[in-house]
Design a protein around this nucleic acid. Structure first.
Lengths: 229, 229
DNA sequence: CTCTCTTGACTTGTATGGTAGTATGCCAGA
DNA sequence: TCTGGCATACTACCATACAAGTCAAGAGAG
């Protein structure tokens, strides 16, 4: 059984299991806040909605619960995890620590090809200023991924992706607040520091960048207390 | 609602799901190398061995695969993940980055109670010198957990646990090599630095400590090439 | 002997049935 | 009005059945 939105042609080339489709769909819905924190979702309900059996739904739920996006309460129900302040702050903490070491590593031996790639991305990011928040978040993810990949830390990137999920859920609520222009400026400063081989400045830059992302976390909590634990 | 004065533990029996039991058992077996990297295990086989159905086994497999300890190849079989050099080194990289920031944080305001706790643990660790590797690894895990918890980063600890799994698999193969005495010395140096409020020295100390753990990774790969990807 | 095709014994993926725990609301009784 | 008991309608958990892909051994043709 296949989910809506995937045509037969793409299934021929790449066979994606129902579980993976459900996982990706639900994960996106949770991060985009289409499924709000605290919302109740049941295996049967989701299964019926997508026209699949309960089992793959259940397995997708397990994956999302492992990631801290769902809370499965046996015999009671499954709920979109409410946003935990400590979980978000710890996610930022971990991400900052890892990315700080990554950019320090990059600055020790900045590959020209990488710097060129990053500068290309910066140009594109400037084009997004004023555009949709979602477009920027995609570009932002690509940018940070390029940093990790450039340092040869693809496996570490997987950790960052998990931390990002927690943070992005909040960022979507705060899309009114954050300034794309300032974030692009921070990216620019970071790339300059890496290119110059200035590890200390690169580190300081990325740490400030990541700290700033959750700057208005307290405001968001006040605006949406029902979404928080 | 619970009545005041009643011991909750005596009232409710602890129900642990079959999935969780299987997960814990298999995870331990993989880390202890009872299930060797590359070994093939099937859902049906494990299910029969433990007298349960395939479904909970399957769900435990999914969790372990998410953690990078199993590799599920659809319609082909499930295998204990071979040790990936890059996965292990990235795990160490992440762990070093996070723990470095943790000890720096601790050094900014070293709580006397925490220092006392750590010193108690150091004393116990010294008692283990010459004992079993497993005993020390338990004490080691408790020590590092105390650091994370002391910094109020329980959520970050969960990430470290995942990284540790990758590293511990290697350490079990190298139990002949590593010197417990030296590791305890490193722990001691670290605690001294934290107690003194010397963040830079604490950072340097933990980084050296974690780098050293995988010092003989190349040797282990030469001794057990069949366990590596 | 070599190549091709078929067959069957595996594997995991998905669907469905049954069970026990939990919450809820009705209702009798105080 | 309030309380306790109970039927009922959920829930997730586990078991079982079926479906579909993979792979290797072996029969048979060239």
């Amino acid at each position: 059984m296949q989910l809506a939105g995937l045509d037969a042609a793409s299934l021929q080339t790449v066979r994606v299991s129902v579980v993976d489709q459900l996982y990706a769909t639900l994960r996106g819905a949770i991060i985009d806040n289409d499924l709000s924190p605290g919302a109740r979702i049941s295996e049967a309900e989701i299964a019926q909605h997508y026209g699949v059996s309960r089992q793959p739904v259940r397995e997708a739920f397990i994956k999302l619960a492992n990631e801290g996006l769902l809370e499965i309460r046996p015999q009671r129900g499954t709920f979109v995890a409410k946003i935990s302040l400590s979980a978000v702050m710890d996610a930022r903490f971990v991400r900052e620590a890892v990315e700080a070491d990554i950019v320090k590593l990059l600055a020790t031996d900045p590959a020209p090809a990488l710097i060129a790639d990053l500068n290309d991305q910066l140009a594109r990011q400037r084009g997004i200023i004023g555009g949709s928040a979602r477009d920027f978040m995609e570009a932002d993810e690509a940018f940070h991924h390029t940093l990790a990949a450039g340092a040869g830390k693809e496996n570490a990137w997987r950790v960052i992706v998990e931390m990002k999920a927690q943070m992005d859920r909040v960022r979507f609520l705060s899309s009114v607040h954050f300034s794309v222009a300032r974030l692009v400026d921070q990216h620019t400063t970071l790339v300059e520091a890496i290119a110059a081989g200035d590890g200390a400045r690169a580190e300081q830059s990325i740490r400030a960048h990541l700290k700033g992302i959750l700057h208005d976390l307290p405001v968001i909590e006040q605006e949406h207390p029902e979404y928080f634990r």
